[in-house]
Computed example of a mutant assay.
Amino acid sequence: MTLTLTLTAFYAGLAGLLYLYMSIYVIKQRLNIGQGLGDGGDDTLNRRIRAHGNFNEYAPLTLVLIAGFEALGAPALLVHLAGIILIVSRGLHAYGMQGGDKEWGRKYGILSTFALLLVLSLANIGMALF
């Protein structure tokens, strides 16, 4: 039997596009202020760097958990739900990292990412054992 993780591949592709967008967003600010390395004390650049880094800290593990969930036979609807939550939560977090009146996005992005990590972790453990 050949295992295909088609749904995970789709959401990994979307995550890759979001990561690329965030990378360009960081580079754009670097060019705007002439800062090649570090943040130079620029709050906007610091926020963009952290949003980009935070995505890189959470998205890969979450995608691995989604892949495990799919491989263990989770219903397609639930795999899609997990993928959508990943993309939306990381997008919300990045949006909220701009600060000001957008801070709510960071809060809800973090909460939904943590909830997704918890649910997927427990689901993978449960499905693998039982």
Results as ranks from 00 to 15, higher is better:
52 H>P: 04
84 I>V: 13
87 I>N: 02
113 T>K: 02
106 R>S: 06
80 H>D: 09
46 N>W: 03
31 L>N: 14
36 G>C: 08
22 M>I: 03
110 I>K: 02
116 L>K: 06
105 G>V: 06
101 D>T: 15
73 G>Q: 05
55 F>Q: 14
29 Q>P: 00
25 Y>P: 00
76 A>H: 12
108 Y>D: 03
80 H>M: 09
122 L>A: 15
75 P>A: 15
58 Y>A: 10
117 L>T: 14
28 K>L: 11
69 F>P: 02
96 G>W: 04
13 G>Y: 01
29 Q>M: 13
40 G>S: 12
24 I>Y: 08
99 G>C: 02
85 I>V: 15
67 A>D: 06
15 A>P: 03
12 A>G: 04
18 L>R: 05
120 L>V: 11
124 N>E: 11
110 I>L: 14
122 L>K: 05
21 Y>L: 12
60 P>K: 10
56 N>C: 00
22 M>Q: 12
58 Y>C: 04
52 H>N: 11
65 L>V: 10
48 R>D: 02
51 A>Q: 08
93 H>T: 12
19 Y>C: 10
36 G>E: 11
53 G>L: 04
16 G>H: 00
81 L>R: 08
33 I>S: 09
27 I>L: 15
62 T>D: 09
85 I>H: 00
64 V>S: 00
54 N>L: 03
123 A>S: 14
32 N>K: 15
110 I>C: 01
63 L>C: 12
81 L>W: 03
25 Y>L: 02
83 G>H: 04
30 R>E: 07
12 A>F: 05
100 G>S: 02
125 I>N: 06
77 L>T: 13
56 N>T: 14
117 L>E: 03
124 N>W: 08
25 Y>D: 15
86 L>C: 08
122 L>S: 09
90 R>S: 13
114 F>D: 05
21 Y>M: 09
107 K>G: 00
121 S>H: 07
104 W>L: 06
31 L>V: 13
86 L>D: 10
13 G>H: 01
39 D>F: 08
124 N>Y: 07
35 Q>H: 14
82 A>M: 10
49 I>N: 03
111 L>Q: 14
96 G>A: 03
122 L>R: 09
61 L>R: 05
111 L>F: 11
13 G>N: 04
78 L>F: 09
79 V>K: 06
75 P>D: 15
121 S>C: 13
49 I>W: 10
57 E>H: 01
115 A>F: 01
67 A>I: 10
30 R>I: 09
53 G>H: 03
22 M>K: 05
109 G>A: 07
110 I>H: 08
119 V>K: 00
70 E>V: 03
65 L>Q: 12
51 A>G: 09
15 A>S: 15
87 I>D: 05
49 I>L: 14
111 L>E: 02
18 L>G: 06
36 G>F: 15
100 G>C: 03
118 L>S: 14
12 A>S: 12
90 R>E: 11
15 A>M: 14
123 A>P: 09
54 N>Y: 04
98 Q>M: 12
14 L>N: 00
56 N>D: 00
59 A>V: 15
103 E>S: 11
104 W>I: 04
73 G>E: 07
43 D>H: 00
36 G>V: 12
125 I>W: 11
81 L>N: 02
17 L>W: 07
101 D>V: 13
